[in-house]
């Protein structure tokens, strides 16, 4: 097992956020994906949407300045920005199912080479936590995933086929892990960018699915 440094979570989320385009409606999942909102490109206006019906919220509120009625999907107090709109939960998901969300960024336990991913249930535990993940995964224009390349035990998460129950089939387009940036196409996982110092072979050794090196592969971009 290599002891080379891996990418930080913020770098992974920054890289995905670099793909956001001007005026995109973006939905960030709870946990690691919320870090995407820390990446600010002054040339792009991003509209952040949250499942609870907040359309166009701003950065996290400073301590002592929170509006107790204004939270994002993770229950964090966010700020109002000019142009923000509020709808109820059914209308918020009408917006999602209606295809208005340009990208949803989520965490996952596993991603498969056909774009399937799993993030809601561990069969050894009873029940599951879906929240809005299935609606978003099925209906957003794009699904991006941010997750560690392997499990805590070192088992691969980039698989030929998901072992866990899937959240949506054939949904994932782009994936950032702590070892690089991967696109999913009909040819499976394409390694687009690799963490500094890592080779395709070293990353492949930590991956179950077969990786293809992109013709324009390069070192991971931090900005």
């Amino acid at each position: 097992m290599s002891e080379k440094p891996k990418l930080e979570r913020q770098a992974m989320c920054d890289r995905l956020a670099m793909e956001f385009q001007d005026e995109w409606i973006v939905n960030l999942g709870v946990g690691m994906p919320t870090l995407c909102s820390n990446y600010i490109d002054p040339n792009k206006e991003i509209i952040f949407h949250s499942e609870n019906g907040v359309i166009g919220y701003g950065p996290l509120a400073d301590e002592g300045k929170e509006d107790k009625h204004l939270v994002n999907a993770g229950g964090q107090n966010v700020t109002a920005v000019p142009g923000m709109a509020i709808v109820h939960h059914a209308d918020s998901f009408a917006l999602i199912r209606g295809g208005m969300v340009d990208v949803t960024v989520m965490g996952a336990y596993e991603v498969a080479e056909n774009g399937d991913f799993a993030n809601w249930r561990i069969p050894t535990r009873k029940g599951g936590g879906i929240g809005g993940a299935m609606d978003l995964a099925a209906c957003a224009k794009r699904v991006f995933i941010a997750m560690e390349h392997t499990t805590r035990e070192g088992n691969p998460r980039l698989l030929k086929k998901c072992n866990l129950p899937v959240t949506a089939p054939s949904a994932v387009k782009l994936l950032a892990t702590d070892l690089g940036l991967f696109e999913i196409t009909s040819d499976g996982f394409i390694l687009k960018e690799y963490a500094p110092g890592w080779t395709l072979e070293e990353i492949q050794a930590q991956t179950e699915a077969e990786l293809t090196l992109s013709s324009d592969a390069q070192e991971f971009r931090f900005r």
Binding site: H89, S92, A94, G132, A133
Partner: peptide, 22 residues
């Protein structure tokens, strides 16, 4: 309680839950 089968549950995706009520 759920793990001990002391309560029943139906798991519904959030948007489906909202739309079913609507």
């Amino acid at each position: 309680m759920y793990n001990n089968d002391e309560i029943d549950a139906e798991l519904v995706p959030q948007g489906t839950l909202a739309e079913r009520m609507r």
